[in-house]
């Protein structure tokens, strides 16, 4: 599809059920560490370039259907946030493509921006401004009239359990979890058709986590939104997501619905009882992906796991 960058359609077509919401194709993002000024000759030349690069996202391919909730799990630094940032037009990938309802995130960024919103781990607000002032700013950027936005802000914040008297007071006095709720409200406010959630519930109490999950489901059910969510909460991933992708060192190492993943790992581990999502995570993000031959060699999954972990520790020394 050839769409000029400058003449981007005002109302993108997104109500086609057969259309894929998000298509990620061989996506790669490499970060280069800047070298320190002076003393660049010291180290031996052999291990140089490799070490100065981080392959944050490494050849990722995945297609997300409209109305699907997909979870991304992975260790710290595995590239989840980087992936989300590329989808949010905040990072330009080195190679590969992402399109959202057919619009390329790099070439048609303005159109994509109308369709998406994102919640990051950090609330990111003008801390001296009140939730209302912060959110009304966000709403206007998305072309919402002031009066309508004010009503909607009150409604969403109320639903997330923010007391009305907090809405006009500076955000800096709020607890981390409360600030996070305001951040979630900012994303819901613009009714995005694709919602990118980067650890939205980290730091929330169990009840608030539930509230957010209910909200996410509602956005899908009533608004036909497509949702990509990263989380470190295995229960949340299992409860909320239609499919889960596990990402390790920038690569997708497993993809499927939670039950299928659990079945697969149960098989590999040779258990009689179904493994937990936690165990699935440990399996796919282990220092070394444990195969059936490894299990045979070491006697059990646990022993193989320990052996590889010990090996990694030795390597790191």
């Amino acid at each position: 599809m050839a769409i000029n960058v400058d003449i981007q359609p005002a109302v993108p077509v997104v109500n086609d059920d057969t259309k894929d919401a998000v298509v990620i194709d061989s996506l790669t993002k490499i970060f280069k560490k800047s070298r320190p000024l002076l003393r660049w000759h010291k180290k031996n030349a052999g291990q140089k370039e490799e070490k100065r690069e981080v392959r944050a996202v490494d050849n990722v391919t995945i297609t997300i259907k409209r109305r699907e909730i997909v979870g991304i799990l992975g260790s710290n630094g595995s590239g989840k946030s980087t992936l989300i940032r590329i989808l949010s037009t905040l990072l330009i990938p080195d190679s590969g493509h992402v399109s959202i309802f057919g619009y390329d995130v790099v070439k048609n960024d303005r159109t994509v921006q109308r369709l998406i919103n994102r919640v990051s781990v950090e609330a990111s607000f003008f801390k001296k401004l009140s939730p209302m002032e912060n959110l009304i700013y966000a709403a206007r950027l998305y072309n919402m009239p002031g009066d309508e936005a004010r009503l909607e802000i009150r409604r969403i914040l109320g639903r997330l359990g923010i007391k009305p008297d907090r809405i006009g007071a500076p955000l800096e006095n709020m607890s981390r979890g409360m600030q996070q709720k305001v951040a979630i409200a900012r994303a819901f406010l613009t009714a995005p058709i694709v919602l990118l959630l980067d650890e939205p519930t980290t730091g929330l109490d169990p009840r608030s986590k539930n509230d957010v999950q209910t909200f996410v489901r509602e956005l899908r059910d009533e608004h036909d939104a497509t949702i990509l969510i990263t989380t470190h909460d295995m229960d949340e991933a299992e409860a909320l997501c239609d499919r889960v992708a596990i990402i390790d060192q920038g690569r997708i190492v497993a993809l499927g619905d939670a039950l299928a993943l659990k079945r697969a790992v149960t098989g590999i581990m040779g258990r009689s009882e179904m493994v937990t999502m936690h165990e699935v995570f440990m399996h796919y993000t282990a220092a070394h992906l444990i195969t059936e031959t490894d299990i045979e060699r070491y006697g059990s999954w646990e022993k193989a796991f320990e052996a590889f972990e010990a090996q990694r520790e030795d390597d790191e020394e």
């Binding site: 949010s88 921006q113 994102r118 990051s120 990111s124 950027l141 998305y142």
Partner: peptide, 8 residues
């Protein structure tokens, strides 16, 4: 990041 993400 939020300002740059907005469709303006």
């Amino acid at each position: 990041e939020y300002t740059f993400m907005a469709p303006i």
